[in-house]
Amino acid sequence: EESVKIVRLVKNKEPLGATIRRDEHSGAVVVARIMRGGAADRSGLVHVGDELREVNGIAVLHKRPDEISQILAQSQGSITLKIIPATQE
């Protein structure tokens, strides 16, 4: 059973501070990098390897990473992410 986590981040004009990529094996959209000091890093709630399912209620599974980045870039104020946390080894 996948544990889905709802994360709310507050982002002003600054970038979210995370990059995403598509996992070639599973097809999932995952967090590739977290930039120090960005909104994602400061929240402490988003981690490399987390699978991104939704951004502000928009399912991202069938979107290209550049489309998802665009949605994230255009979002201001509160951003709600639905993520499946990376499995902690």
Rank of each mutant, 00 (worst) to 15 (best):
R33H: 12
R53Q: 10
A18N: 02
S43D: 04
S75R: 08
P65K: 08
T87Q: 13
I34S: 01
T80M: 10
L52P: 00
I71E: 09
R33L: 03
L72G: 03
R53W: 05
H62I: 02
E67V: 07
S78H: 12
L45E: 13
E67K: 05
A32G: 09
G27N: 12
G38A: 05
G77E: 11
R36G: 07
R42D: 04
R21C: 14
H62L: 06
A32Y: 07
L81D: 04
E67G: 01
L81H: 04
S43M: 04
S78I: 14
V48N: 04
A86P: 06
T87F: 10
Q70M: 10
G44P: 01
S69E: 14
D66R: 11
G77M: 06
P65S: 12
Q76N: 13
Q76V: 12
R53V: 15
V46R: 00
D23A: 06
G38H: 03
I68K: 01
I71L: 13
V60N: 03
R33C: 07
T19S: 11
G49Q: 02
T87C: 15
E54Q: 05
T87G: 12
D23C: 09
H47N: 10
A40I: 14
I83R: 03
R8A: 06
N56F: 01
A40C: 11
H47S: 08
I6R: 12
T19R: 07
V10I: 12
I68F: 03
T19C: 10
E54N: 02
L72T: 05
I83W: 01
L61I: 12
E67F: 05
K13L: 11
D50S: 00
A59L: 08
D23P: 01
H25N: 12
V30N: 05
K11I: 15
R33D: 15
S75A: 14
A39L: 14
A40F: 11
S69G: 11
R33M: 07
K5Q: 08
K63P: 01
M35R: 13
D41E: 11
R8P: 04
V30D: 03
I84A: 09
G27W: 01
P65E: 12
A32Q: 11
S43H: 04
R64P: 11
I83E: 05
L72I: 14
G37P: 01
G27T: 04
R22K: 13
V29N: 10
P85K: 11
A32K: 10
L9I: 15
R42K: 13
T19K: 09
N56Q: 06
I79P: 03
V30M: 10
K11M: 15
V48I: 10
H62M: 07
K63L: 11
R64L: 07
I34H: 01
R22D: 04
I83F: 08
G49M: 03
P65R: 07
S43A: 06
I84V: 12
A28I: 06
T19E: 15
V48A: 09
R21H: 10
E54P: 00
A28Y: 03
G49R: 02
Q76K: 12
P85T: 07
K82Q: 06
S26H: 05
D50A: 00
H62E: 14
A59I: 08
V46C: 03
R22Y: 13
E51R: 06
V30Y: 14
G38F: 05
A59M: 08
I58E: 13
S26M: 04
K13D: 14
E89W: 09
I34N: 01
V29P: 14
R22H: 08
E24H: 12
H25R: 13
I71M: 14
P65L: 14
S26P: 01
Q70N: 14
Q76D: 15
L45G: 08
A28R: 15
V31S: 01
I58W: 06
E24M: 11
E54D: 03
G37T: 01
G49P: 00
